[in-house]
Simulated assay, not measured.
Amino acid sequence: MAEFEKGVVPRKDLNGAGLRILIVHTRWNLSIVDPLVKGTIETLRSAGVTAENILVRDVPGAFELPFASQQLLRQHPDVDACISIGVLIKGSTMHFEYIADSTCHGLMRVGLDSGKPVVLGVLTCLTEDQAFERAGIGRQGHAGHNHGIDWAQAAIEMALLNKK
């Protein structure tokens, strides 16, 4: 039996030429967010999205992502998709649950209200090690997989779907 591999099956035929993509990322947990943003940009570029068509903005934390994504989509109506990137790591209080739930629902609403794809690039991890592994920079001898790659591919695919 084949081994189960978690994640999106990458599409080799994605062509992002001519697409304009917005990336909004947090400065909270920046040592994890930076590699995710880098993986996202590298994947967009390798799929044909030009550097000048990738707009990158930052916000303090995950709770601010929905508002910022909404405002930036309004300010840049030529954007074809938005990727909102952040990292939440569970602590000892309920704060994690409130922020994760609000951020996810808010980003979904932005996409539905704007009619533009908004990719949920927010890691919700139980430990720092899980977060580092999902950014492709694992600390326990296993680098892991950079989920920014998947988010970039999803943004291109959904932007193309929205143009049909």
Results as ranks from 00 to 15, higher is better:
56 V>K: 14
98 Y>H: 12
90 K>I: 10
93 T>P: 15
18 G>L: 09
64 E>H: 12
48 G>C: 13
96 F>P: 00
43 T>N: 11
32 I>E: 12
30 L>H: 12
91 G>V: 02
80 D>G: 13
55 L>Q: 08
90 K>D: 14
68 A>C: 11
74 R>L: 15
93 T>H: 12
64 E>A: 12
97 E>N: 15
60 P>S: 03
18 G>V: 07
58 D>H: 04
15 N>P: 06
55 L>P: 00
67 F>Q: 13
35 P>H: 06
43 T>Y: 08
18 G>E: 11
38 K>N: 12
48 G>N: 13
93 T>Q: 12
19 L>A: 01
95 H>A: 11
91 G>K: 09
38 K>S: 11
54 I>C: 04
27 R>T: 13
77 P>A: 04
71 Q>A: 13
64 E>Q: 15
75 Q>C: 10
42 E>I: 10
80 D>T: 10
17 A>V: 03
45 R>F: 06
68 A>E: 08
23 I>S: 03
37 V>D: 03
63 F>E: 05
51 A>V: 04
91 G>N: 03
35 P>K: 01
43 T>I: 08
57 R>A: 13
74 R>Q: 15
57 R>P: 01
95 H>T: 11
34 D>I: 09
73 L>V: 10
89 I>A: 00
90 K>G: 12
28 W>Y: 07
22 L>E: 10
44 L>D: 13
47 A>W: 03
24 V>N: 07
46 S>N: 15
84 S>C: 08
34 D>N: 14
21 I>F: 05
70 Q>A: 02
71 Q>S: 14
52 E>D: 09
23 I>T: 08
88 L>G: 02
63 F>K: 00
76 H>L: 04
22 L>K: 14
42 E>K: 14
90 K>A: 15
76 H>W: 07
62 A>C: 15
72 L>E: 07
83 I>S: 06
